[in-house]
Lab assay of single mutants.
Amino acid sequence: HERALMVNRLQKLTRMLRVHPDPKWKQEQQELIKRLK
């Protein structure tokens, strides 16, 4: 369940980064990718 939330968050971040590349979001995205591996 928590994994699904993280995947959701990651997808949302990816969409937001396409619109507005924010370093903070980029960092969070990298963190999520690490944790999901």
Rank of each mutant, 00 (worst) to 15 (best):
T14Q: 08
I33M: 04
R15P: 02
L5M: 13
Q29D: 01
E31H: 07
K12N: 08
H20R: 11
V19I: 13
K12Y: 15
M6Y: 06
R3D: 02
M16Y: 05
Q30E: 12
N8P: 00
V7N: 04
Q11C: 15
H20G: 04
K26H: 08
A4S: 10
P21F: 15
K12R: 11
L17F: 02
H20F: 09
V19Y: 14
Q29W: 14
Q27G: 04
R3N: 07
L36Q: 01
N8M: 14
K24Q: 07
R18D: 06
E28W: 06
H20I: 07
V19G: 13
Q11M: 13
M6W: 07
R18F: 04
P21N: 12
K26M: 11
K37V: 09
Q30T: 10
E2D: 11
Q27K: 13
I33S: 00
E31M: 10
P21I: 06
L32D: 01
D22M: 05
R18K: 14
W25K: 05
V7S: 04
Q29Y: 14
R18V: 05
E2P: 06
Q11W: 13
K26T: 07
H20L: 08
R9L: 07
T14N: 12
D22E: 07
L32S: 03
L17H: 01
A4V: 10
W25G: 04
L36V: 01
M16I: 07
D22H: 12
M6K: 02
Q30I: 10
I33A: 03
K37S: 11
K12S: 06
R3E: 06
M16L: 09
R18S: 08
E31P: 00
L5H: 14
R35A: 12
Q29L: 15
L32N: 03
E28R: 02
R9K: 04
Q30V: 10
L32F: 01
V19F: 13
R3Y: 15
N8Q: 15
V7P: 02
L13M: 01
K37T: 12
Q30C: 15
E28Q: 04
L10H: 00
Q27M: 14
H20T: 09
H1A: 13
P23W: 04
R15F: 08
T14V: 09
L10A: 01
K24V: 13
R35I: 13
H1C: 13
V7Q: 05
L5I: 10
K34D: 05
H20P: 00
L13S: 01
Q29C: 12
N8I: 15
M6D: 04
P21V: 04
P23R: 04
R9N: 02
I33L: 06
E31D: 10
Q11I: 15
E2L: 10
K34M: 09
M16A: 03
V7I: 14
E2Y: 07
K26A: 05
L10D: 00
V19T: 11
A4C: 14
M6L: 13
K26Y: 11
Q27Y: 06
R18E: 07
K34Q: 10
P23K: 11
P23Q: 03
Q11P: 02
L13I: 09
L13N: 01
R15W: 13
Q30L: 13
H1E: 11
Q29V: 14
Q29R: 14
L36E: 01
R15N: 10
K34Y: 08
K26C: 04
Q30A: 10
L32W: 01
A4K: 14
L10M: 02
L13Q: 01
L36P: 01
H20W: 11
Q11G: 06
I33T: 03
I33K: 03
M16G: 03
R18C: 06
K24P: 01
E31I: 10
Q11V: 13
V7H: 08
Q11H: 12
H20N: 09
L10I: 08
L36A: 02
V19A: 09
